[in-house]
């Protein structure tokens, strides 16, 4: 479960998040959408403190991560993150990418981590690429490895920051499929996305951000069929 209370974030004089309050329940899949510059990526990045909030509080599970006493490195082990540009480690093979953190951070044995890594690579359909370097993979494959790498830490929550925005159109589907099957396993997920079809189909809730504020918070069928705010209506007109 993720609880966010009055979250503010400023970069210098620019206030990107202007007080966001919401809760993401255990097992819920939440799509975060909005125009560019609306603060949706910043919002997501605050959830594992890649950005430090200027004000407000965030809980992951029953731990307040904005509490100064919280060991954020420990928290991050339970919060997986997938980036727009994958950020695989280019000097490690696919399997090494997936097993590095479990071995070095969690203290798993190499054999354990590799067994788990192979199993995860199977899930994303890439076990035959285990010994390749990332430079040999397509964008879609890289992103699926990045998902496997995050899952290898057995996170309680997965954050996706525009996971398909950097992909060629024909590769979007394979990544969305993996995310869809992950959603069906009951993983708690927060997804910043421009894939409206995916949000409608997979998300339990849609958060619409605009100008650093949470403008709408509704189930997808409601949001897409009858957005309440003018800003959401305008946004959807442009997108659909």
């Amino acid at each position: 479960m993720i609880k966010v209370e009055d979250l503010h974030k400023s970069f210098g004089k620019l206030e990107v998040l202007k007080g966001i309050t919401t809760t993401i329940k255990q097992g819920e899949v939440v799509a975060v959408i909005g125009p560019s510059g609306s603060g949706k990526s910043t919002f997501l990045r605050c959830l594992n403190l890649l950005e430090e909030p200027t004000r407000g509080r965030i809980w992951i599970g029953d731990q307040e991560i904005t509490d100064k006493k919280t060991n954020i490195m420990k928290v991050r082990q339970h919060v997986g993150m997938v980036f727009q540009h994958f950020h695989l480690f280019p000097h490690m093979t696919v399997l090494e990418n997936v097993t590095y953190a479990p071995i070095k951070v969690k203290g798993m044995t190499k054999a354990e981590a590799e067994a788990k890594g192979i199993e995860l690579l199977k899930k994303v359909g890439l076990e035959q690429k285990a010994n390749e370097y990332p430079s040999r993979l397509s964008g879609g494959q890289k992103q699926r490895v990045a998902i496997a790498r995050a899952l290898a830490m057995s996170p309680d929550v997965m954050l996706f920051d525009e996971p398909t925005s950097a992909l060629d159109p024909e590769m979007v589907k394979e990544v969305l499929e993996v995310m869809k099957s992950l959603a069906h396993t009951g993983m708690t997920m927060a997804i910043v996305t421009h894939e409206m079809g995916f949000a409608r189909e997979v998300a339990d809730r849609v958060l619409f951000l605009d100008g650093g504020q949470l403008v709408e918070d509704a189930p997808p069928h409601e949001f897409f069929a009858s957005p309440k705010s003018k800003r959401a209506q305008e946004f959807l007109e442009k997108m659909l």
Binding site: N48, L50, M73, K74, V75, R76, Q77, V79, G80, M81, F83, H87, L88, F89, Y100, A101, K104, V105, A146, R149, A150, M153
Partner: peptide, 9 residues
């Protein structure tokens, strides 16, 4: 960022 997100010290 990828390393931080994985909790790597």
């Amino acid at each position: 960022e990828a390393a931080l997100a994985l909790g790597v010290p």
